[in-house]
Amino acid sequence: MGLHPQLIDAHCHFDDASFDVDRQQALSRAEQAGVTQQIIPAIKAAWWPRIKQLCLDHPGLHPSYGLHPMFLTDHQDEHIDQLSEWLAAEQPVAVGECGLDFYIEDPQPERQQRLFEAQLELAGRYDLPVIIHARRSVEEVINTLRRFPGLRGMLHSYSGSEQQAHRLIEMGFYLSFGGPVTYERAKRLRHLVKSLPLESLLIETDSPDQPDTQHRGERNEPAYLPLILELFSQLRSQPAQEIAAQTRLNTQQLFRLQ
């Protein structure tokens, strides 16, 4: 692919235990691939301290603290107050990963909605962007965001419709894409990557989840981000350099990175 500019993985769970065996090597592989920075979103309160330590140890990694909708059994109501304290004290780059997931067993939609809105309220209070997980819930997420005007953020691993994408972009949100777009059958995702304005797109791996076609069934890692970039380049008939530069700028602007 030739030399490419520096890339930012807009969504990576690099604190995951699956990296405990080779985290330093995985980081080196990422840097060799041009991935110099990563956004590390939290999924539950118990793991905030390890994300904090990871990002202190590696300046290119940026923490985000939140409560993921798929881990409802781990969340306590007092975690929202704790989150407020963490946001005030730690000054992360974002709130999240938060959102709505109506695909999981026993989704408890009312509880998910309460936790999501509490985190959106904190994002507004601390003037931070939100990292949103929306699975089978994009319409509900849009309707919720309408009640919090002025918030900014990203929908990670976007899976909604083109019409919903345009509504989110009009509201000032970015849409992020990763491994799923590399699968031939992902016609709708590929159409979105091809047709949406590049100024509103981010690229991510969601490591260790959602590997691309070349690494199907394996642990995903940030070093594979250039494969997403390459596919964007093919789908949009645009040089990889241009896409890398714009998606990097988008990520820097959203998270106020230096």
Rank of each mutant, 00 (worst) to 15 (best):
P59G: 07
P107F: 06
L83R: 02
S159G: 15
Q119L: 09
E242Q: 14
H156S: 10
Q24R: 11
L257C: 08
L192T: 08
I104G: 01
Y183G: 07
A245N: 14
A165S: 14
A26M: 12
C55N: 12
T251G: 07
S157R: 07
R29D: 13
E170C: 01
S137Q: 04
A186C: 10
D16C: 10
D57A: 15
D212W: 04
S18N: 02
S157G: 11
L192M: 11
Q76G: 01
F232W: 08
E170M: 00
I51C: 08
D209F: 15
P222S: 15
L61V: 10
G99V: 07
N220L: 09
V35E: 04
L201W: 04
E162H: 10
D15P: 02
I142N: 03
I39K: 06
G96Y: 08
H215W: 11
E85Q: 14
I243H: 05
V95D: 01
V21N: 13
P129N: 01
E110F: 07
P197W: 04
Q210Y: 05
A45F: 09
E78L: 10
H13Y: 06
A240P: 11
F102T: 06
Q253E: 14
L198T: 04
Q234P: 04
P107S: 02
F19P: 04
A94N: 03
P63G: 06
S195I: 03
Q32F: 00
G172F: 01
R146F: 00
K44C: 14
G178L: 09
H215K: 08
A10I: 06
P180F: 02
G217L: 12
L61T: 10
Y65C: 03
S233W: 12
H62R: 14
S84C: 14
I203Y: 06
D57W: 07
H133Y: 13
Q241P: 00
Y126W: 14
E121W: 06
C98I: 15
T205L: 11
E162W: 03
S195P: 09
T247M: 08
